[in-house]
Computed example of a mutant assay.
Amino acid sequence: MIGLDYSADQLRRARTRTDGPLMRGDATALPFPDASFDTAVTMWISTDVEDFGGVVREAARVLRPGGVLVVYGVHPCFNGPHMFFNEDGSRLVHPTYRQRGWHDESPFWGEDGIRRRVGMHHVPLADFLNAFLIPSLSIERFEEPDGPEVPHALAVRARRTS
């Protein structure tokens, strides 16, 4: 297992939790040869990268034929700069949902929190799903993991076909 992150700060934190190898790198240009791994996992990154499709393509590239890609992260429909979280657990979707790309701020983000400090990249659901429609991948499953009434996360399992 090899951990990779673009953020040196995140890698410093990870080093306090694992003895495994960690590398600084760009998920859209992985520093590994083709067909290097049986499994690739991305977690919670779709809102932090400019090219989510590029991340999926690179992950597929480094998988061996038959290898599995698991993507787990923010549900594009129910999180983002377009969402208002009501006290009763419901959510209100603002018409800015279709505004893909980087958002430095949102009227719905509180005064504190990570998104207020660093912003986020919004990937609408169609763009998120279309990222997996590449010739070398076969989608096996989508999952909205248990949790709040309105899903917070979305998981995808795909397999490298060639």
Rank of each mutant, 00 (worst) to 15 (best):
V68M: 14
R100V: 06
A14D: 03
E149S: 11
R115D: 11
R64D: 14
R116E: 12
L129Q: 00
Q99L: 12
L129Y: 01
G80T: 07
L63K: 09
G147E: 07
S90Q: 15
F132I: 05
R61T: 08
P124L: 08
Q10D: 11
G147D: 08
N86P: 09
M43F: 13
G101E: 08
N79F: 13
V41M: 05
Y97W: 00
N130S: 06
Y72N: 11
I139H: 03
D146S: 12
R115L: 15
V49D: 06
T16N: 05
F78Y: 15
F52P: 02
V118G: 03
F32H: 05
L63Q: 08
A126R: 03
M120C: 06
H152Q: 07
P135I: 09
N79T: 15
M43Q: 08
R57Q: 12
S7T: 07
D48I: 10
V150R: 01
Q10K: 05
R15V: 01
Y6R: 10
D48V: 11
M83I: 15
S162T: 12
S90G: 15
L125M: 12
P124M: 07
F78W: 15
G110V: 10
D51E: 06
P151I: 03
I45N: 04
A27P: 03
S138R: 14
L22G: 00
H94V: 07
F52V: 04
L30F: 04
E143L: 10
L154D: 01
R141M: 12
V118M: 10
G54L: 08
L11C: 03
L69N: 04
N130C: 06
E87R: 12
D9K: 04
F128Y: 14
V55L: 08
R157Q: 15
E140V: 06
V62Y: 11
L11G: 00
F108Y: 15
D19I: 05
Y72I: 13
R15I: 00
V74G: 00
A40M: 09
A158P: 03
V70L: 14
T39F: 14
M120G: 01
G54H: 04
D104M: 04
I2S: 03
P107C: 03
A155S: 05
G101I: 12
T96M: 03
C77A: 12
E140W: 11
A59M: 15
Y72H: 12
Y72T: 11
W102E: 07
V118F: 09
V156G: 00
S106H: 10
